[in-house]
């Protein structure tokens, strides 16, 4: 009963993504991407990852739409109809192979919610039992992100900061 509900959501996501590629006009593509991130966030919420869903809603639906709009506002949206060359032979061969490889690798991943998978045996119980004594943070996800993996998170933040600075530099030169 529980797992059947994701399938219509995933189907809607597929339709939206295909529409965003196929649609002729860039504004509509931006709107479709907004709807896409709504659906993605619904899927996250359905799987129980409420924090990820919140971030997806904020970044995907709010910020990304506004940023895309700013980009369209800065460039010329009238001329940028999608002109795609037909795919070359290499693309036609390599990408299905890559897909098959990924599916093959995915068959090794333990099933969703499998109690015998390695992550569920060792790591999750430790985090769940000890995170409150260790860190005094009520939210386990926050504890994992900010305490157990704080170095990782810090370097991620550095990467995002660097990309932000790069964008600011590029836009400043554009403004002169």
């Amino acid at each position: 009963m529980i797992f059947t509900f994701e399938i219509p959501l995933l189907l809607l996501m597929l339709v939206t993504a295909a529409g965003a590629i196929l649609v002729k006009d860039l504004m509509s593509a931006v709107l479709l991407l907004g709807s896409y991130s709504f659906f993605l966030s619904l899927v996250w919420a359905w799987l129980g990852a409420v924090d990820v869903a919140f971030v997806e809603a904020v970044v995907g639906a709010g910020l990304a739409t506004v940023l895309f709009l700013l980009t369209l506002f800065g460039t010329a949206p009238k001329d940028t109809r999608l002109r795609r060359p037909p795919p070359s032979l290499t693309t036609l061969i390599v990408f299905p192979l890559l897909g098959i490889l990924l599916l093959y690798a995915a068959s090794d991943i333990p099933g969703f919610g499998d109690p015998n998978s390695p992550a569920n045996i060792h790591i999750s119980p430790t985090y769940l039992e000890r995170s409150f004594q260790d860190t005094h943070t009520p939210n386990v996800v926050t504890a994992v992100l900010m305490d157990y993996r704080s170095l990782d998170t810090m370097v991620e933040t550095v990467v995002i900061f660097a990309s932000g600075i790069a964008c600011a530099l590029l836009l400043r030169r554009h403004g002169k």
């Binding site: 006009d25 504004m27 931006v30 709107l31 907004g34 709504f38 966030s41 919420a45 409420v50 869903a53 919140f54 809603a57 904020v58 639906a61 709010g62 739409t65 506004v66 709009l69 369209l72 506002f73 949206p77 009238k78």
Partner: peptide
Amino acid sequence: DISIGYALLNLVGALAIAKYLEQKGHP
């Protein structure tokens, strides 16, 4: 909480798009 965030963000996005379309005209 997510739904409150949705409601606010929806306003931001839709207002931005509507303002944009007002200035550019529709294609």
